[in-house]
Computed example of a mutant assay.
Amino acid sequence: MVNIRSLDPSASPLDYYGSELRRLREEAGLNQDQLGKILFCTGSLVGQIETAKKVPTRQFSERLDAGLMTGGLFSRLVGLVLKSQLPTWFQPYAELEARATYISTYQSQLVYGLLQTPEYARAVLSVDHPDRLDEMVAARMERQRILDREHPPVTCVVLDEAALRLEIGGPEVMRRQLQHLLGCMRRQWTQIQVLPFTVGQHAGMMGSFNLLRFEDDPDLFYAESYDAGHMTANPQVIRERSVGYARLQATALSREDSAALIARVMEERYGHQPGPAVA
């Protein structure tokens, strides 16, 4: 039976997306099953998105724009929808991250969110968001689109060696994640360095943090706790953390040595293990 749940388009970006989908589908004289066939999905999925019970993907939105000839409406809307799936306390940072021209980050245990594969992100997010995994992973992947812009931010990443060795999602997920990092290192505006265990005490021992720089706005420091993010443009904090980050970069391995370590860990720790010998 067709779901005719009433939506308030002003309630959220997801509700607005659903109401526009229903309006334009009905204007085209299509039922949910007919539109589903055009989009290579089920009519049930169309109905779930129309009633804001399921979050649309970017691929679904692009097919929808093509199928209903909307001029890119849903491809534009889906960014807002996915951003709204981020934790409320994180959304202000995500908006600023998207405007930054320089991103500098130190990560003490995990691969930086903008460099995570979908499988790695799913494993990380499953710890605290098992009931909203699809939405959270889609939102994280949407954040990564800033690295594919015509003018992406310069992104400098210092990863503690622990991030390479902490097994997230199993050996195959980690292997693909480290392989992805090696691919990211070939990007013109992305620099990845590894801080090896051998350095001992260092300037990042207080935990992960990000520094954002903008064209016209003050620099921003960001760090997060379990359920909140802390942002400040305090000049003294920016001064101290900028010096601390420069020391981390100086202490970390070079780009070439970092790539070699990532490749070595990928093969030695997460490489395909040979099966039992056949008699």
Rank of each mutant, 00 (worst) to 15 (best):
P152R: 04
P13Q: 08
P13Y: 06
I38Y: 13
V154F: 13
V199M: 06
A100F: 02
G29R: 06
P235A: 09
D160C: 03
Q91E: 12
V81W: 05
R186C: 07
V265R: 03
E268Q: 13
Q59D: 15
C156D: 14
P171D: 02
L181P: 00
A279G: 13
D65V: 06
A162V: 06
M1I: 11
N234T: 10
G79R: 11
L261G: 07
A66L: 13
D128T: 11
L147D: 01
R264L: 09
Q144P: 00
C184K: 12
R140Q: 03
H180Y: 10
A163I: 00
V137G: 00
S19C: 10
D148M: 06
R247Y: 10
L68D: 08
E167C: 11
G72C: 07
K83S: 12
S258A: 09
G229E: 07
P218H: 09
P9E: 09
Q249D: 06
D134N: 10
D65M: 05
E142I: 01
N31V: 07
A163R: 00
S44E: 13
W189Y: 15
Q188T: 14
G79H: 11
L253I: 03
Y102T: 13
M231V: 05
L45F: 11
L261C: 02
N3D: 15
G204L: 03
D257H: 12
L82D: 01
A246F: 04
L110Y: 10
K53Q: 14
N31Q: 08
V157T: 05
A223E: 11
I262D: 03
S104R: 14
A260W: 01
A246L: 06
D8C: 07
V124Y: 00
S104W: 11
L80V: 09
S225L: 13
K83M: 14
R143D: 00
E142Q: 09
A162T: 09
K53C: 07
L253M: 10
S6P: 10
E27C: 11
A11N: 07
Y106K: 03
